[in-house]
Simulated assay, not measured.
Amino acid sequence: MAGTTLREVLMGASRFFDSQGIRSPLFNAEALVQHVLGVDKARMLMVWNDPFPVEKVAEFESLVRRRGAQEPLQYLIGSTEFYGREFVVSPSVLIPRPETELLIEEVLKQRDLFAGRAPVIADIGTGSGAIAITLALEWAGAKVYAVDLSKEALAVAAGNAERLQAHVEFLEGDLISPLLERGIRPDLLISNPPYIPTDDCEELDAEVRDHEPRLALDGGPDGMYPYRILSQALPTLWPASGPAYVAYEVGIHQDIYVQRMIAKAVPCVETGILPDWQGIGRVIWGRRK
């Protein structure tokens, strides 16, 4: 590769990714070049015709091989963007998806419901901490707890909170257990839990199936085990009176069933379904005024 220009190296990687069935091959190649060289896209284009640094060749070729083998780009570069901020990710956590930003937007609409006081928010299954940290930064004064069963995930999330200067308290444990043990009664219960049916996990794309943590994917036989536990606990978890709110991200064909779970658990609660950009019911919410 000695003497080969950056442009030639990039286009070669893009062609290789295309041959391996990697979606958006040019984007992937550009992202790896920028990561290895430590430059943004503008700087990359400025040195487009310069020789690719010899001392960076081995690192770049290794990353290209790994990406061609379906290892997620976000794990290779060690980060991803979510709600306008950069979050560190590793194979210990699920990679935050753009549709989860819809969940954030829907939760932030509730600020008027809690006007005049600082609410308690609990994020169940926090993973990288993307939801909890974003809410802590966007909702001034809120007390935010983040729960996860995985020590490794909590370490990643805590690191993200420190780097982004977000005040979040992290709790280790299964679903709502840490909240119950500490007597924490959140005004807002938020979760993007595992929601893939167990048998369907083997049918996922290789990038997800072979690299993202199964603990963050497998939602039980029908994919709805976490929603049952969380929804049934709402009467106990929510404060005895006053406004309260719950919001989940769900998988395809789960929206109506999860909405019914909330309605059954808390009579007279107002519920709703927010579709994503493909028209799939993605965010299910319940509100007590």
Results as ranks from 00 to 15, higher is better:
Trp277Met: 09
Val89Ser: 03
Gly127Lys: 02
Gly38Met: 08
Ser14Val: 02
Ile124Gln: 05
Leu137Phe: 12
Ser24Ala: 12
Gly183Lys: 15
Val147Ser: 07
Leu217Ala: 03
Pro193Asp: 14
Val107Asn: 13
Leu171Arg: 11
Arg7Cys: 00
Asp18Ser: 14
Gly141Asp: 13
Trp139Pro: 05
Ser150Ala: 02
Gly223Glu: 03
Arg287Pro: 06
Asp40Gly: 13
Ala136Gln: 11
Pro72Trp: 07
Gly173Lys: 07
Ile77Glu: 07
Pro186Val: 15
Leu32Trp: 13
Thr5Gly: 01
Ala206Tyr: 11
Pro186Lys: 13
Trp139Gln: 09
Gly68Met: 03
Arg7Ala: 00
Ala155Leu: 12
Ile273Gly: 03
Ile95Gln: 05
Gln34Gly: 09
Leu37Tyr: 11
Ile176Gly: 02
Arg185His: 15
Val36Gln: 07
Ile131Glu: 07
Leu26Ser: 07
Ala166Asn: 12
Gly21Thr: 07
Val246Arg: 09
Phe17Gly: 10
Leu175Cys: 04
Arg85Gly: 06
Arg66Gly: 00
Ser150Leu: 01
Pro197Asp: 14
Lys143His: 14
Glu212Thr: 00
Glu8Asn: 00
Arg209His: 11
Tyr227Thr: 10
Leu274Thr: 14
His35Gly: 02
Asp210Leu: 04
Asn49Thr: 11
Gly78Ala: 09
Glu169Arg: 09
